[in-house]
């Protein structure tokens, strides 16, 4: 589904990703862990198409096609979804308008008829239940005045509305209490299918108690330095990142 080969990326002349290789097949959940500043969020942003980053080498294919040539909106419509680490507040853009536009852009891309207002509201209610979201959305602006937890739930809710093929969760667990964490994880799990895949970027093992990964990768200084099964996360939790650091400083 997603294939990253020897990816190098820099921002303002500073190299952040230094040769990433990653293969993701349908049905898989990959966790990417690593200390602060190792390049986790950069990787997520590069995949979503953020223009602040310069790709200096390597390639990414998504569903067999070159991803890097595509605009962020096209990537989204083809099934790539980024759950933002810091969902931005957009005063003046009503949440419902935003979502309806988003859903209909996706549908148009797939050659489907746009949803009517009624159909849209029905879908919205269904998906809100799925992620246990109780925030009243009518008359609210995108993320404006949402608590930290609500913002993260809102990301998962949008994911549920858009039904992506590949979801990238960028530190969706940060700032969440244990109940919110469970809700978010349940939402993610409910959307799992043999045809979809997920990349879970996180600092901590605790999210992985709820979203069980098939693979755990450790990103350090812009490279994947270790890949293993879900037990790696537990090992990290126990030993911290120091052993990775010392292993790689040698």
């Amino acid at each position: 589904m997603l294939s990253i080969k020897n990816l190098y990326a820099s921002v303002e002349g500073m190299e952040i990703l230094k040769g990433i290789n990653l293969e993701i097949k349908p049905g898989e959940v990959h966790a990417i862990m690593g200390p602060n500043g190792s390049g986790k969020s950069t990787l997520a942003s590069v995949l979503a198409g953020k223009e602040d980053y310069e790709i200096t080498a390597g390639e990414i294919t998504f569903l067999g096609e070159d991803l890097l040539d595509k605009s962020p909106e096209l990537r989204a419509k083809e099934g790539l979804f980024l759950s933002f680490q810091y969902p931005v507040e957009i005063p003046g853009v009503p949440m419902v308008n935003f979502l309806k536009t988003s859903v209909n852009e996706h549908r148009k891309h797939k050659g489907l008829k746009e949803l009517t207002a009624g159909e849209f509201l029905k879908l919205m209610r269904e998906k809100m239940d799925l992620v246990d979201m109780h925030t009243k959305l009518t008359n609210r602006m995108v993320n404006e005045g949402f608590s930290g937890g609500e913002k993260k739930k809102n990301e998962i809710f949008q994911m549920a509305m858009l039904e992506p093929k590949l979801a990238i969760l960028d530190e969706t667990d940060s700032g969440l209490d244990i109940d919110a964490l469970r809700v978010v994880a349940n939402g993610v799990n409910a959307l799992k299918s043999p045809e979809t895949a997920a990349i879970v970027v996180t600092h901590y093992q605790r999210l992985l108690d709820y979203i069980v990964p098939d693979y755990v990768h450790i990103l350090y200084k812009g490279k994947i330095v270790k890949t293993a099964g879900k037990e790696l996360a537990l090992e990290l939790e126990e030993k911290g990142y120091d052993w990775i650091k010392s292993d790689n400083e040698k």
Binding site: G49, S71, E73, F84, V93, F98, T101, E105, M141
Partner: peptide, 24 residues
């Protein structure tokens, strides 16, 4: 940042800009 957020949800750049201006 806000523009990118909208685009990352499949809304094309022109439309996203328009939404932002209207919001303003």
């Amino acid at each position: 940042e806000a523009l990118f957020y909208l685009r990352a949800r499949g809304i094309n750049e022109d439309k996203a800009r328009l939404m932002m201006m209207n919001a303003f």
